[in-house]
Computed example of a mutant assay.
Amino acid sequence: MSNIIRDSDEVELDGPPAFEYGQKVRSRLNIRNDGTFPGKEIGDLLVKKGDEGYVVSIGTFLQRYYIYGVDFVTAGRRVGMKGRELVSVEPAVREGV
């Protein structure tokens, strides 16, 4: 269990989400099933590093972190990811700016 990555004590919800609905993003890491993705075994690869998708939902986890539902169209999956696991491919289009 020594390879467990702990999140910082920072509370992301103190600020606005890093990504917006419809924004194109890229996975910074390989993402494996932690047991929350139905139909796949724990540890199965869900998203490869470099896969691109679109933010389709924004939720929260533990009242601390934003969770971005990302539709990885080519993989045919919608996966919940933390902001630190994603990077923007194209800038967000902010309405009213």
Rank of each mutant, 00 (worst) to 15 (best):
R78Q: 03
G76H: 01
V79A: 07
G15H: 15
E10D: 12
F19V: 02
V97C: 05
S8N: 09
T60C: 12
S27W: 03
L45A: 02
R6Q: 11
R26D: 04
D71G: 12
F19M: 06
R77C: 00
D34G: 11
K24Q: 11
V73C: 01
G69W: 05
P16V: 01
P38L: 07
M81V: 07
G39V: 09
G15I: 03
T60A: 15
A92N: 10
I5M: 09
F61Y: 10
F19G: 02
L13T: 04
K24F: 03
V79G: 07
V56L: 06
G22P: 10
E95C: 15
Q63W: 09
A75Y: 01
F72L: 08
I4F: 03
E52L: 07
V93E: 11
G76T: 10
V11F: 05
D7T: 13
V11K: 01
S27I: 05
F37R: 06
I42K: 15
D34S: 14
V97Y: 04
N30F: 05
E20N: 12
K24E: 09
I4C: 01
N30I: 02
G80E: 08
Y65H: 15
V25L: 12
G53T: 09
G43Q: 02
D44T: 09
P16I: 02
K48D: 09
V79P: 05
P16L: 10
E52H: 00
T74Y: 12
V93D: 06
M1Q: 05
G80Y: 01
G53C: 04
G76R: 02
R64P: 12
V89A: 13
